[in-house]
Computed example of a mutant assay.
Amino acid sequence: MSGGTLIRRPLVNVAPAAVASPTYLASRAAPHHPADLSAHKLLAPSADVHGNEWHFEGPDGARVPMLLEPTYAVNNSVMLRQAAIAGMGITILPANQVVADLAKGLLVRVLAEWEIRDAEKELSLVYPGRRHVPAKTRSFVDFTVEWFRKRDDYRHLP
């Protein structure tokens, strides 16, 4: 339960993925280390939404912060996805928003061996916490929780 009269049911944690279009990557070498991002066009959420740094952790445990100087900044992840597909640069998005694009080859992962820190998103269902939840609401909550429990396609990216 969370504050007052609302109930929050966590459904899934969605990992972030650094992605770019094959077209964009054809014009310059794919980054192999977060420091390589300084030679790339970065597409990022507005600083007031996410801050101005991306944090990476390598396979050896090394942590690397990257100060962002984005070419394109917007407060909408759908627009960031579209910009990446259009070949405008590299971005980080929740995996559930790009898993189909990765499967279709519209986007490819970059820096896949690096974990992106502090960017995981929790998707939750929030509903009124009355003493007696209506049957329709309870049915919807149960269905949604079960549906997400069975989904695994965006927790493990290609």
Score class of each variant (00 low, 15 high):
residue 94 P to R: 00
residue 73 A to T: 11
residue 107 L to F: 10
residue 46 S to R: 12
residue 100 A to R: 04
residue 24 Y to S: 05
residue 32 H to L: 13
residue 58 G to M: 09
residue 86 A to P: 03
residue 52 N to G: 02
residue 44 A to L: 07
residue 82 Q to R: 10
residue 57 E to D: 08
residue 74 V to F: 00
residue 144 T to Y: 14
residue 75 N to Q: 11
residue 27 S to A: 09
residue 27 S to H: 09
residue 39 A to D: 13
residue 120 E to C: 03
residue 93 L to H: 02
residue 31 P to H: 01
residue 143 F to H: 14
residue 85 I to E: 10
residue 107 L to M: 05
residue 61 G to S: 06
residue 82 Q to Y: 02
residue 86 A to H: 00
residue 124 S to W: 02
residue 95 A to I: 00
residue 60 D to W: 14
residue 60 D to S: 15
residue 24 Y to V: 06
residue 87 G to S: 11
residue 144 T to L: 11
residue 153 D to I: 09
residue 76 N to P: 05
residue 75 N to R: 11
residue 88 M to V: 02
residue 121 K to Y: 02
residue 24 Y to R: 04
residue 104 K to Y: 03
residue 149 R to P: 06
residue 50 H to T: 09
residue 146 E to N: 10
residue 117 R to S: 05
residue 53 E to Y: 07
residue 125 L to T: 10
residue 40 H to Q: 14
residue 59 P to L: 07
residue 45 P to F: 04
residue 153 D to E: 15
residue 136 K to E: 15
residue 128 P to F: 05
residue 48 D to L: 09
residue 96 N to K: 01
residue 35 A to I: 12
residue 131 R to N: 08
residue 49 V to N: 11
residue 102 L to F: 05
residue 66 M to S: 01
residue 51 G to W: 00
residue 61 G to L: 11
residue 153 D to W: 00
residue 118 D to A: 06
residue 72 Y to K: 08
residue 105 G to S: 05
residue 29 A to M: 08
residue 50 H to R: 15
residue 29 A to D: 12
residue 88 M to Y: 13
residue 112 A to W: 00
residue 154 Y to W: 15
residue 140 F to Q: 09
residue 58 G to V: 11
residue 141 V to D: 08
residue 38 S to V: 12
residue 94 P to V: 03
residue 32 H to D: 14
residue 114 W to K: 02
residue 116 I to H: 01
residue 90 I to F: 07
residue 153 D to T: 10
residue 33 H to N: 15
residue 118 D to I: 02
residue 120 E to F: 00
residue 51 G to R: 09
residue 54 W to R: 04
residue 38 S to C: 06
residue 39 A to E: 14
residue 103 A to M: 01
residue 26 A to N: 12
residue 155 R to E: 10
residue 86 A to E: 11
residue 152 D to N: 12
residue 92 I to L: 02
residue 130 R to H: 06
residue 32 H to E: 15
residue 68 L to I: 03
residue 51 G to A: 09
residue 44 A to R: 00
residue 103 A to W: 06
residue 144 T to M: 09
residue 68 L to S: 04
residue 123 L to V: 14
residue 149 R to Q: 13
residue 51 G to K: 10
residue 65 P to Q: 14
residue 71 T to F: 14
residue 82 Q to K: 10
residue 58 G to D: 03
residue 84 A to T: 04
residue 134 P to E: 07
residue 57 E to A: 14
residue 150 K to L: 15
residue 87 G to I: 05
